[in-house]
């Protein structure tokens, strides 16, 4: 093990104390001989594990604090200038409509819906995860150019009163919601010069 052929996976097992004694001793010797690559990776691993543990400790303040902070914008800028456009549903994989070109296979428990406005097509695709939640992927495309348009923000407001809105994560022309509970949502997509509203988006049965 003089030349570094240690896979990152083995270093992770070393850190977990999950290697057999002979392998553990070889890695320890390799590190003691000064392999910078492995030392750097182990240091990154230790720092990342510590940060993963800390990342779960963020605490949201009470909802009244969040609402108060939200209100201050409306108090100071009372007139919104962006117009909201309501999108119409043109395809729902659960309604037994014939498949359209470009429609992905939604799979068991999954769904796909296409919405349209005058300027944009919006594709929503949901796949059920093992925890009865859904992994939701969406994409907005310009009807004129066919190109994906990344929204600046996507909010999903549950129809159920008192439940906090969720925020999707724009990612390379798509937006993702990794762990969406079943329910009915109003989805609002914020683009540069207009807002798009998808109403009564049903996720799950």
């Amino acid at each position: 093990m003089n030349e570094c052929d240690v896979p990152p996976e083995m270093l992770a097992q070393y850190q977990d104390g999950a290697l057999p004694e002979t392998e553990r001793a070889r890695i320890a010797l390799h590190l003691a001989q000064g392999c910078v690559r492995c030392q750097t990776h182990l240091a990154w691993l230790a720092g990342t594990v510590r940060a993963i543990q800390q990342a779960t400790q963020f605490v949201r303040p009470p909802e009244r604090v969040v609402r108060k902070a939200s209100r201050l914008f409306r108090e100071r800028r009372p007139s919104p200038s962006l117009r909201d456009v309501l999108a119409r549903l043109v395809f729902d994989s659960r309604m037994g409509a014939p498949a359209l070109a470009g429609v992905r296979d939604a799979g068991s428990g999954g769904f796909q819906r296409l919405y349209s406005t005058e300027r944009f097509d919006i594709d929503l695709w949901g796949e059920q995860t093992e925890a009865r939640a859904f992994y939701l992927i969406g994409q907005v495309r310009s009807r004129a150019e066919g190109a994906a348009v990344e929204p600046d923000a996507v909010t999903l407001t549950p129809a159920e009163p008192g439940v906090e809105p969720l925020f999707a994560l724009p990612d390379g022309g798509e937006f993702h919601v990794p762990d969406l509970p079943p329910g009915v949502y109003t989805v609002r997509l914020l683009l540069a010069d207009e807002g798009i509203v998808l109403s009564d988006v049903r996720v799950g049965d």
Partner: peptide, 20 residues
């Protein structure tokens, strides 16, 4: 651009960072 839902999204995203 004066769009309140964007502010809601900003506060919703970062409130936990500030408080914690």
């Amino acid at each position: 651009a004066n769009h309140p839902p964007a502010w809601d999204a900003l506060i919703g995203r970062y409130a936990a960072l500030l408080f914690t």
